[in-house]
Design a protein around this nucleic acid. Structure first.
Lengths: 107, 107
DNA sequence: CAGATTGTTCGTATGTTTGCGAACAATAAA
DNA sequence: TTTATTGTTCGCAAACATACGAACAATCTG
């Protein structure tokens, strides 16, 4: 057991991944990425959960930096946070890119 | 609030993402992907947690289908599950590929 | 101002995750 | 057979996640 901690990159990947770790949040991001932007109500409409829970999931995605929202009274407009979306994409792409594991290993 | 459930793809992404949602598991996968294969002890050595916890994380990664292990007495050899690794890579790549959100949105 | 609309926050209940030490199992070596 | 090595499993505690209804806040409309 080493004393080494995790790298910043590993932490960041884990953070993004955690945000993606629930189907509702995957669905929200998928829905948002398909549009220029949309309101809370539109998101709520396509999900099988109550508005309180939707709001909570949106909060988590916001905390993870993957989305952002702004009040457009009396509604709230949400959209993808592009810079972090790009960051996440590249981190995951890089993470999955290299795999030296033998094809014959562990059969 | 719709009655629609989540799609299989959304569930699968969430499953993989959940497995990646902890820095220790990210570190394990990163370590494994960099080698042809390795033993439990080698993994344990680079992590700041006890063997019991390492074993638990490996179990989760195995359940998610991202790794596999085989006994090579008295050790246990672990390695990446290539087919699912590829699946995860393509799912994440596809997921992050499209984002129609305006750059000017929500500023 | 009163009421409707739109989301967020609060309180609560239930279940899951993370982590540890201790006990256990299986094999290898003396 | 005894002892050492290597991991897994068990039992527990603390923390976190998920979901809901109810209460709340902020804005618009009549």
């Amino acid at each position: 057991m080493a004393k080494n901690d995790y790298t910043e990159q590993q932490r960041q990947i884990a953070l993004f991944a955690k945000a993606l770790g629930h189907p509702a949040r995957v669905a929200i991001l998928h829905f948002l990425a398909a549009q220029e932007s949309c309101f809370f109500g539109d998101i709520h409409e396509v999900l099988p959960i109550t508005k309180a829970t939707v709001s909570q999931h949106l909060k988590e995605l916001k905390n993870a930096g993957l989305i952002q929202g702004e009040i457009e009274a009396p509604k709230v407009r949400y959209c993808i946070n592009r810079p972090n979306w790009e960051l996440a994409r590249s981190l995951f792409a890089e993470f999955f890119s290299e795999c030296k594991t033998h094809k014959e290993c562990c059969e």
